[in-house]
């Protein structure tokens, strides 16, 4: 597309200005989003996101039999969820032979509020298996929305 003469020059100038403005907006938005993109997760924490929603914790042979651990305790240490998309966490046990079993779930309320949560094991844990924690949005998430959660620790308790 081309515009002849002075009119065309003015239009080109305005379009360039518009383009620069749009770019600046996009850059600023990018910076803003970047600043809140991930939940702060220092130390031994594990970050979950919509793109990488699952973490796994091995069930090691400990002094106490795995089957005697009554609860999986999950510390959600930080949450970035600016749109407060409702989120839940599903906890499963995966045995050594690959069979997986549902243990339970919990949700954040409000959806950007960290906390400590427990899910009963029902005596299903076995040494050598794994427990997985999966971040699950409870409603469709619009494109480009950020949900980032720092899981501070996952422990098995009696």
């Amino acid at each position: 597309m081309s515009f002849p003469g002075r009119t065309g020059h003015r239009i080109r100038q305005r379009m360039q200005l518009l383009l620069v403005t749009l770019c600046l907006h996009a850059a600023c938005a990018g910076v803003a989003a970047g600043g809140h993109e991930h939940a702060s997760c220092a130390g031994s924490g594990h970050r979950l996101s919509l793109a990488a929603p699952t973490l796994e914790q091995p069930v090691e042979a400990a002094s106490v039999a795995a089957s005697e651990q009554a609860f999986v305790r999950v510390v959600v240490a930080g949450v970035v969820n600016p749109q407060r998309i409702p989120i839940s966490f599903v906890v499963r046990f995966h045995a050594r032979d690959g069979k997986a079993g549902y243990l339970g779930s919990f949700s954040l309320f409000p959806p950007d509020n960290p906390g400590t949560f427990i899910v009963a094991t029902g005596g299903k844990l076995e040494a050598g298996g794994r427990v997985s924690i999966t971040l699950v949005p409870l409603q469709p998430v619009p494109a480009m929305q950020v949900v980032s959660v720092c899981v501070g620790s996952v422990r098995f308790i009696r």
Binding site: P86, I87, S88, G104, S105, F106, S107, L108, F109, P110, P111, G115, F117, I118, V119, L138, Q139
Partner: peptide, 12 residues
């Protein structure tokens, strides 16, 4: 953590 919180956020 389970039914209470989940009901809150599902109802939204």
């Amino acid at each position: 953590g389970t039914p209470h919180n989940t009901a809150h956020v599902i109802i939204g």
